[in-house]
Amino acid sequence: MSEVFVAERDVVIPGEKLADGMDFLPGENTYRDNSGIYSRVLGIVGLSGRVLKITPLAGPYVPRIGDRIIAKVFDITMSGWRVDTNTAYSALLNVRDATTRFIKKEEDLTQIIAIGEYVVVNITNVTSQNLIDVSMRGPDLCKVEGGRIMSINSMKVPRVIGKAGSMIQLLKEKTGCDITVGQNGLIWVRGTAEGEYKAERAIKFIEAKSHLDGLTERVQALLN
């Protein structure tokens, strides 16, 4: 007989038994050992039909193709820039992916993007060894100018954005700031000094309380 030991939205730790029996299937961040299904990370249980999955509460950012991230330039190479992606791996931004303008061979690349500056980029390729290629070609991809950069745990990014962007919309409305969220946990906030401060405080609040229900209402109360 199959039985399940946890309920939807329960917090589980690594190795905790979620279910027993073949009627259930191991989903994301779980594994099967004999007939039991166990959690692989600290996270929240999600039950969809027969599939058990865990949404992690913490953990490192894993780069994926198509993700928009914010990265910091730390080196310049022959053909482009090396950027720090806030993971264990740096990424390469090629010159032709950074600008549409013709670049002469001897041109000084720091004139386009200098070391220490941030860029909003898209991940175009990730290899098995986590070598990352990024591109600045696309809508809303640009060099970071003005405002401030803040960093949160990348697992909390979906909560900052909210369902269909509801949370980020609320933050933008209430603070009057423009906010760009990178999937790697870096956030670019720009607006008035007061607005930026309010937005930063609200984002930190979301990060700390992300496991609670009714977060949008709580943030609304905080910002009013």
Partner: peptide
């Protein structure tokens, strides 16, 4: 390690 969200089989 669990708190850091590192994938672990067990404690």
């Amino acid at each position: 390690l669990a708190d850091a969200g590192i994938p672990m089989r067990d404690m």
